[in-house]
């Protein structure tokens, strides 16, 4: 009979395997742990709303958007302190990239006040201002929507890939072969994705997953067939997968038709943020929001319009496993 504390070879191997699994999970995806509390086995998507986000005016109020962000992050990470979630996400010394979306021009790009709020919390979590890089593919587009281009000093950095170019070497996955932005490969340790909730004439909708088209040099090659399977394949590129920490989808202003360009007649003031660490669950949830708005406006479903976002299911399939698109496995929390 074995004594207490003795381990058989099988036990030993079990422990080794379990330990390795834990190390692997906590090493790469340990941050997911927080989001699964309270909803075991489910991906949590938090939708935070503030009907008074703009006060009496038309622009987003900085103070209110910071509060909205705090509410979303505290809920997602189950924390009371607004800075604690960020400490779970990033570590001092890391360079954190905020991949915004500036394609939609002034009317439909990532909100400046939101980006400022994220930068504020990151700094409170110990990230130096100069270690935060706000970026998209083109500096002119960033400037056009109101970002101040800055690539030096102790300020938050902000510039496009046009300033540093793409890697020479191709990276490939599935049907995709692309050069990655050097901002991602050489300057960012961690990536926070800050897309906009939008309709897309080709892909159906565009949020977390499609925003990664701004990381590659040849997005124009990956629009056929509703961007499927290309969007999922792009998100499988190792540098993107390894560095992605969180998606904060800007749904303060969103579009339900005519996207991705800015068409005021199809925008609505949604006054919300959608936050998740599962980009597939976030995109699925955002898609449903757009469908509800389309129904409210008397428009056809995206399926009936011939542009259902099939890439979301592809991103969840066995070849990709980027997250889940199964509503039973998504916990949507509205706050």
């Amino acid at each position: 009979m074995r004594q207490r504390g003795d381990a058989s070879r099988r036990d030993f191997l079990k422990k080794c395997i379990t330990g390795a699994a834990v190390l692997r999970v906590t090493g790469k995806m340990g941050l997911l742990e927080a989001t699964e509390q309270g909803a075991p086995g489910k991906s949590r998507v938090v939708i935070a709303r503030d009907a008074m986000l703009r006060g009496a005016g038309t622009t987003v109020d900085s103070h209110r958007v910071l509060n909205l962000l705090d509410r979303a992050m505290r809920t997602l990470f189950d924390r009371d302190n607004p800075v604690e979630p960020w400490k779970k996400l990033v570590r001092p010394g890391e360079i954190v990239g905020l991949k915004v979306n500036a394609l939609g021009g002034r009317g439909l790009s990532t909100n400046l006040q939101l980006v400022e709020a994220i930068c504020e919390r990151l700094q409170e979590a110990g990230i130096r201002a100069s270690d935060i890089v706000v970026w998209d593919r083109d500096s002119d587009e960033l400037e056009h929507v109101g970002f101040h281009i800055s690539a030096a000093g102790n300020r938050v950095q902000c510039f496009g890939t046009d300033r540093v170019d793409y890697e020479e070497e191709l990276v490939t996955f599935g049907s995709v072969g692309s050069r990655l932005s050097k901002i991602l490969t050489r300057h960012c340790d961690a990536l926070i994705n800050v897309p906009v909730l939008k309709d897309h004439d080709g892909a159906g909708v565009t949020m977390a997953l499609k925003n990664m088209y701004g990381v590659i040099h040849n997005p124009n090659k990956y629009h056929p067939n509703g961007c499927n399977p290309y969007i999922a394949d792009v998100n499988m590129l190792p540098e993107i997968r390894a560095k992605m920490r969180l998606t904060i989808c800007d749904a303060t202003t969103a579009s339900y038709e005519g996207g991705p360009g800015y068409k005021p007649e199809y925008n609505w003031k949604n006054n919300a943020l959608i936050v998740s660490q599962d980009p597939v669950a976030l995109d699925y949830t955002g898609w449903q929001i757009i469908e509800r708005k389309r129904a409210e406006k008397g428009l056809k479903t995206l399926e009936a319009d011939g542009r259902a976002p099939r890439y979301i299911a592809t991103a969840a399939d066995a070849q990709h496993r980027l997250g889940t698109n199964d509503p039973k496995r998504i916990a949507v929390v509205e706050v």
């Binding site: 124009n220 056929p224 005519g258 996207g259 360009g261």
Partner: peptide, 8 residues
Amino acid sequence: GDRERGYC
């Protein structure tokens, strides 16, 4: 669409 490019 507006502000977009073709496949080329």
